[in-house]
Design a protein around this nucleic acid. Sequence first.
DNA 1: ACTGAATTGATCATATTGATCTAATGATTC
DNA 2: GAATCATTAGATCAATATGATCAATTCAGT
Lengths: 142, 142
Amino acid sequence: MINSVDQRLLSLLRQNARTSVSDLARALDLSRSTVQSRIARLEANGIIRGYSLVLGGEYLAHQVEAHVSIKVHQKLTLKTNSALEQISHVAQLYAVSGEYDLLAIVQAQSLEELSAVLDEIGNLEGVERTNSAVILETKFKR
Amino acid sequence: MINSVDQRLLSLLRQNARTSVSDLARALDLSRSTVQSRIARLEANGIIRGYSLVLGGEYLAHQVEAHVSIKVHQKLTLKTNSALEQISHVAQLYAVSGEYDLLAIVQAQSLEELSAVLDEIGNLEGVERTNSAVILETKFKR
DNA sequence: ACTGAATTGATCATATTGATCTAATGATTC
DNA sequence: GAATCATTAGATCAATATGATCAATTCAGT
């Protein structure tokens, strides 16, 4: 499915998704046709879902983010999930192991807004208790 | 700094970072020069840090991920941060509010590997205690 | 050895690029 | 309104890239 050439291709695209196919081919010492068809196949197979922006600190500096661990009432999981999905500030939602059931990643434009969203989540019917960790600083991200 | 045209440009690039400048210009009803120079400026200003891959579920399905909250010994924060950065499986590291000092996002190719990394982190000199939440399922991500 | 898959490299017409430039337009200040 | 600066438009040029197709060659599996 994914061999070492694919891995190298993915790595190059991870570094700069706007690299031209010709440049990728040169970097990998492959023909352009080959790179074209490998990309096509990786896309068709769902390995590559798309290509996106990496925003810089200048932009992100104005956002605040928190990781919210959520303990859910047992009978209300579907309802809670759906309610969380309705909250636009919830960027990601995962089911997790451990003390809590869900982990929500919440983004807002200010601390006030974040606080309001956290309250909103805490007040959802299916939410038993929450624990929030507000991101203060990004040490690194790769 | 960022006006509504910039926002629309960022939005288009977020959807497909490989879109040609010419296509972006057509979509925004602007001249190619303008789009070129706006991209150049957004990059120069650090708003756009880069362009990357969005990997699909087929690929990610083979990875396991955990969010590790870390309480650090007070005098050892720099040393601990640096040690965590040396561990390649640590994809992201944040300073957080609350009960813990750091949040590490750890990725591995298997549960065994994840477990080993979690042990490794727990055994770092500056690490007082940890709490790990293994991602079981992605409910949504947007 | 055989077969199917993958790769190569050529070809073609078209599109895009990077860079430069001038003119026009828009925004701001006096 | 005039002056000034910033931004945008659009033209130009040569070089490069693209998408698609194709035939030949190579590779990998049986």
